[in-house]
């Protein structure tokens, strides 16, 4: 057995022990529906900061249907000027804004039981779940994947290459030659993440025999 298959064997074994045994995830990724999402927030504090905008799109195999994308701007009571400068979203800047409750209802409805893909997923998921909780709605329990971690798996194992723990979305965009024009808009980032995700899956498909969703975790 080669290095790859041994480590793969153990990581599968480890996951089947640690996570609830989930046989259904040992299937080709393209058998699943993915929702790729990104949130723009007023800051990085899970308690005091709020979501400004959510962008999400659905991925069926390597296809994105432009008409089936979600872009919701949230009405802000909480308003933090600094982060607005990063995202360029001004409070009520002529956009149709909705209340947090409606936004969260629409988002969870859109996601359904798809697998969620994001870049630094933990952050987006926590922000979303905090908002859901505030509105008395149930937290999302979907499976999640994180492109910042998945990208590592595509890199070669070589004594000459020092892998980083995680990679930024800008780094991924550079590696995969994706336009960064719409960085820091929720749907723009979700789109870059989606293309990076497709690339990663296709690279890993060549690396592993019978790629499954488990291999992406």
């Amino acid at each position: 057995m080669s290095g790859i298959s041994i480590s793969r064997f153990f990581s599968r074994l480890w996951r089947s022990i640690t996570e609830a045994y989930s046989d259904d995830l040992y299937q080709d990724p393209w058998k699943f529906e993915f929702v790729v999402l990104d949130t723009e927030t007023t800051g990085f504090d899970y308690y005091t900061d709020r979501i400004l905008c959510v962008g999400a799109l659905k991925l069926r195999e390597d296809r994105i249907n432009v008409n089936d994308c979600l872009e919701i701007y949230l009405d802000q009571q909480h308003y933090n000027r600094e982060s607005t400068e990063v995202h360029g979203i001004l409070k009520n800047e002529g956009r149709d804004c909705v209340q947090e409750r409606e936004a969260m209802l629409r988002l969870s409805n859109y996601i359904g039981d798809a697998i969620i893909v994001a870049h630094h997923t933990r952050f987006d998921m926590t922000m979303i779940n905090k908002a859901l909780k505030r509105q008395g709605l149930p937290a999302l329990k979907n499976r999640t994947l994180d492109t910042s971690k998945m990208y590592r798996k595509t890199l070669i194992t070589s004594p000459l290459l020092r892998k980083k723990q995680s990679y930024s979305l800008d780094e991924l965009a550079d590696k995969f030659n994706l336009s960064k024009k719409d960085r820091h808009t929720a749907l723009g980032d979700a789109y870059i993440t989606a293309l990076a995700f497709i690339r990663i899956v296709k690279i890993l498909r060549k690396k592993y025999l019978n790629l499954t969703v488990m291999d992406l975790m």
Binding site: E71, L187, G188
Partner: peptide
Amino acid sequence: MKNIISERVA
């Protein structure tokens, strides 16, 4: 609905 992706496509 018009969104940032459809704008880029256009």
